[in-house]
C-alpha cells in the first residue's frame, strides 16, 4: 500500500498547491495609533501611475467606487465620503501622500484607495490610512484575489475587483480597534 499512499500524498499536495490558501492573500502593516477619535474619513482614489492606463480604467473606476461604497457603508465606526478627485501618486512617494493631508483638514483621517489588475483577471486592492493634522500613517491593508480567493469557475475582472475591495476592507475593519483611540 505504501506506494499507492505515496502517490495519494503527492496528489494531496498538488491539490493543496492549486487550491490557494486565503491566508496568503491579505496583508496589514500597522504604524501607529490615532491621536484622536477618527469619526470622519475621506476616501481618495489613487489612479495607476501610468498615463496609458488611466484612460482605459473608467469602467474599473466606477466598479471600484461602487465596491468601496458598498463595503464602507456596512461599518459603523466612522462616517465617510468618497472624494471626486482622483490622485496620481507614485507608490513610494510618502511626501506626496502626506501633503494630501493639508487638503483633507476637514476630516479626521483619509484613506488612499488603490486597485491594480494582476495576472489572470485578478485584482489587488490596498488601503493606506493617514490621520490628518498632524499627518501620520496609521495602517496599510491589502488583499489580492490571486492568493486570497479560490474560485470555482474563472471569475471576471469586476468580480475580482469587488472581492479584493471587500478583502482589504475586512482586514482594515478587523484591525480598526488597534489604530483608533
Amino acid at each position: 500500500m505504501t506506494n499507492s499512499i505515496k502517490k495519494t500524498v503527492f496528489f494531496f499536495f498538488i491539490v493543496l498547491l492549486f487550491s490557494q490558501c486565503g491566508i496568503f492573500g491579505s496583508r496589514k502593516t500597522i504604524s501607529s495609533k490615532a491621536s484622536r477619535p477618527v469619526k470622519k474619513v475621506a476616501l481618495l482614489l489613487v489612479a495607476e501611475n501610468d498615463p496609458f492606463l488611466q484612460n482605459s480604467s473608467d469602467a474599473y473606476r466606477t466598479i471600484f467606487i461602487k465596491s468601496l461604497a458598498e463595503s464602507f457603508v456596512s461599518q459603523k465606526e466612522f462616517d465617510f465620503m468618497i472624494m471626486d478627485k482622483e490622485y496620481v501618486i507614485p507608490e513610494n512617494d510618502d511626501m506626496e501622500k502626506s501633503l494630501i493631508g493639508v487638503e483633507m483638514k476637514d476630516y479626521d483621517a483619509y484613506i488612499l484607495c488603490y486597485h491594480k489588475m494582476q495576472s489572470g483577471y485578478n485584482h489587488k486592492v490596498w488601503f493606506e490610512v493617514f490621520e490628518t493634522n498632524p499627518v501620520k500613517h496609521l495602517i496599510t491593508t491589502s488583499h489580492s484575489t490571486r492568493l486570497g480567493n479560490s474560485y470555482f469557475m474563472p471569475p471576471g475582472p469586476y468580480e475580482t475587483l469587488m472581492d479584493a475591495t471587500k478583502g482589504a476592507f475586512d482586514i482594515l475593519m478587523n484591525n480598526w480597534h488597534k489604530i483608533s483611540s
Partner: peptide, 20 residues
C-alpha cells in the same frame, strides 16, 4: 440602491453617473 448609496457617500454624484 446604488444611486441612493452614491448620493449619500460620493462627493459629486453626477460625475459618478456620467461614467456609470
Amino acid at each position: 440602491q446604488i444611486n441612493q448609496l452614491i448620493d449619500t457617500v460620493y462627493q459629486n454624484p453626477n460625475n459618478f453617473y456620467n461614467q456609470y
